[in-house]
Design a protein around this nucleic acid. Structure first.
Lengths: 252, 252
DNA sequence: CGCTTCCACTGGTCTGACCACTGATACGAC
DNA sequence: GTCGTATCAGTGGTCAGACCAGTGGAAGCG
């Protein structure tokens, strides 16, 4: 363990101990360096580590501040590491969609095979909600619809895996809804796709259901790819409050 | 957004893109600084950030290395509930196979599309190991083979999900191997299926690879179902299994 | 009063030096 | 020959001091 690690640890302790509340300002790097008896470089490295963990946010010219959502020492509620790892990386969304494609397809397939009457009922409710909801706040109903499907698959592992991805899914779905729904034509297409999935499951046609689900996810992915390649601004959901990392066009 | 952040972002990109595999060594700080045209301090800050996120591990005097995609912290926790499920319900194995069917299929598909020469190399090694290994202790090479495939898919999320299921997969694979391999005919079929997958990926035929992989998993599932319905004793593996590392030894 | 200018303070980056650890190589004693 | 040991190049760890670049408030001006 180096000095930097130790400092990082001590700072985190200070913060978590309640000595520093959320949004509270952290002493300046120079002050910390002086007070803790190490060089400023060390302080900076330690702060970067905390930054990576999402404990603090730093702003040029202003200072460093305790992040509003403090993920305690070692997250109990977790999903954290993954989220931090993946959040903000555009490619991740497509990776996610590649996996979703298959999982949703399988879920739809199984749902068509196994859905009980209660499943059908819940699915119908979710579907209606989806149809009737204001497109602008459409993310949750959309997610709810897909979740109803996977639950109808009666495969605990499938449920578990998609549940584990729930947060990331939500982000992804929100992003896609935010991007695609405004385009009236696309919104219409997506509605139609949802309907296809829904009807195939209700009709007990596994193969059709799978195909519909896969097509749906693929359509979303392709559409977003198109949009992005056309230079349209792809709205990414803020995983953490202000990190407006969007707008970065890696044009080295 | 500072230079350091950008560097951190670029490095992470490299890693997630699969340009750098787990346990692989990252160029030295001085090299990176030189190559990316920034000072070493910046590199160090970026590395500390990645360290904070658990993307890399750093060792004094040795270097920095890509950490396993999934922070091991929650590995056990993650599987805990599922393991519990598995213990009681034989059906879970089939649920698992249903999911595997799709995930492995997708992995094979993407691998056929994206495998680099290094991927092909590792895949070949894993495949040969699989061919040459004593069937009785065949579980690990089998798992290693499948893992090599998913890593060649260059989809971090896919890697994560299958890795998360690693232990259960191992159980499942062990079970299937233990049950199926003794039957000479079946063992032969499985070998042929593995070969089909392998060749399809090497030949760069995504569709074939997917089909081969799906057929393979489905064959295993069906075979076990048959056996079970015939009253044959299905050997189930004990839960614990030593935490063996990945089947393939990354030969430096 | 309102606007501008300026300046102190904050983080961001660079340089180049030195320390501490690791691993392999060369060398000496046996 | 073999075995320890000394050496050395490469790596991360730390330091000091300088300068650049945003921020925000205070002083000064119209």
């Amino acid at each position: 363990m180096g000095r930097s690690q130790e400092i990082s640890y001590r700072l985190e302790q200070l913060i978590l101990d309640g000595g520093l509340a959320p949004d509270q300002k952290i002493p300046s790097e120079r002050q910390l360096a002086d007070r803790l008896g190490v060089s400023r470089a060390i302080i900076r490295e330690a702060l970067h580590e905390l930054q990576g963990r999402g404990v603090i946010d730093t702003f040029h010219g202003k200072g460093s501040f305790v992040a509003s959502i403090v993920p305690a020492t070692r997250d109990l509620d977790d999903n954290g590491p993954l989220m931090h790892l993946f959040a903000g990386h555009p490619r991740t969304m497509y990776d996610l969609l590649e996996v979703r494609e298959q999982l949703e397809g399988q879920a739809a397939f199984l749902a068509a095979q196994r859905a009980t009457s209660r499943d059908r009922h819940r699915l119908t409710i979710a579907f209606r909600m989806l149809e009737e909801t204001d497109p602008l706040s459409n993310a949750k109903p959309d997610h709810g619809f897909h979740q109803a499907i996977v639950e109808a698959s009666h495969n605990p592992i499938l449920v578990h895996m998609l549940k584990g991805l729930k947060n990331m899914m939500l982000l992804s779905v929100q992003a896609s809804v935010a991007n695609l729904n405004p385009r009236e034509a696309m919104r219409h297409s997506i509605m139609k796709q949802h309907r296809r999935i829904y009807q195939a499951i209700l009709a007990g046609k596994p193969a059709s259901a799978r195909k519909a689900a896969i097509d749906h996810v693929r359509f979303v992915a392709d559409s977003m790819r198109d949009l992005e390649s056309q230079g349209a601004e792809v709205i990414r959901m803020p995983i953490d409050t202000e990190h407006s990392k969007s707008g970065v066009t890696p044009s080295a």
